[in-house]
Every structure is written in C-alpha cells, then in structure tokens.
C-alpha cells in the first residue's frame, strides 16, 4: 500500500522536562515529518486524546509514547482507559519509562501495551532509542488508516 508522505502525529506523555527535551531533539532529526505533541500529565493526555478542554480540534495521534510514572492519573490508568476505548485502542501505545521492574512490564503488557521500552540512562542512547521507535512505528509498521 503506497501512501502520500504525511505528517506523523505523535503524542508524548511525559513529565520529565529532560526527557521531553531529548525526545523533541530526536524527533527533529527524524526522517519523516512529524508532529510531536506533549502532555505533561495524565489528565492532559486524556484531554488531548478526547479532544476536550484546551485540546478541542487536536489531532488523533498515530503513536503514543507513554511514561508510567505521571502525576495525578498514572500511565497505567491512561493505558487502561485507551485500551478500553473502542476508538482509541487501535492506537499503538509504546510504554517508555525508567522502570525496569518486571511487575511494571507484565502489567503493561497485560493492559495491552504495544511495546515496553526502558529509558536508557545515557542521553545519546536515549535519542538512539527514540530514533528506533520512530523508525519502526512510523516507517516500518503499517498503521490503520485513520477514521475521521
């Protein structure tokens, strides 16, 4: 299936300013044109996904990068909500977190996370990982055609 090159809509749910900065830089250097949206806490992410409050008219993301440890509504709760919603559950959710705990990994996959990535401590490696993610999820993987 050949498609017109288009803007990849990516939602980053992350509260750590440093990680936000690194992710932003990684996506700037990306091969594909992309639109990186940032939600700094869980409620903001949900507002974005449901296009409410300050996010009316927001784009539906093609991929979601989700941190587990968020203030207020946690990453787990967001994952649960997305995967329980018949409109949102088709969006791939990539858990990107600093936790290496087995408990978190198993729980995330149980909640139907599409993949689980541990944030590398090293900044260069972090950017590298984000590149890989972008490469795989935006370039290689075939995503469903957006409805509406």
């Amino acid at each position: 299936m050949i498609k017109e090159p288009k803007l990849a809509e990516i939602l980053l749910v992350e509260d750590n300013e440093g990680d936000i900065e690194l992710t932003k830089e990684a996506f700037k250097e990306a091969k594909f044109r992309n639109n990186l949206h940032i939600a700094e806490d869980g409620d903001e992410a949900l507002d974005f996904l449901y296009k409410r409050n300050d996010y009316e008219g927001a784009a539906t993301p093609d991929v979601i990068l989700l941190d587990l440890n968020l203030p207020g509504t946690s990453g787990r709760e967001i994952l649960e909500i997305i995967k329980a919603d018949k409109n949102l559950k088709i969006i791939p959710v990539i858990v990107l977190t600093s936790s290496e705990a087995d408990k978190d990994i198993i729980e995330s996959y149980n909640l139907h996370a599409n993949c689980y990535i541990v944030k590398p401590v090293n900044a260069i490696k972090f950017i590298d990982v984000v590149h890989h993610v972008e490469n795989f999820w935006v370039d290689i993987v075939c995503l469903p055609t957006k409805v509406g």
Binding site: D15, E17, E40, D41, E44, N69, P71, G72, T73
Partner: peptide
Amino acid sequence: RHLNKIFDVFQRLHKKS
C-alpha cells in the same frame, strides 16, 4: 478518584512545572 492514592510514597497529582 485520586484521593485514595495521595498518601502513597512519591505519588503526585500535578506536574512539576
């Protein structure tokens, strides 16, 4: 819905900014 977790360690409800 947040009230039951606010007494947990490291639990925050708001972003740092």
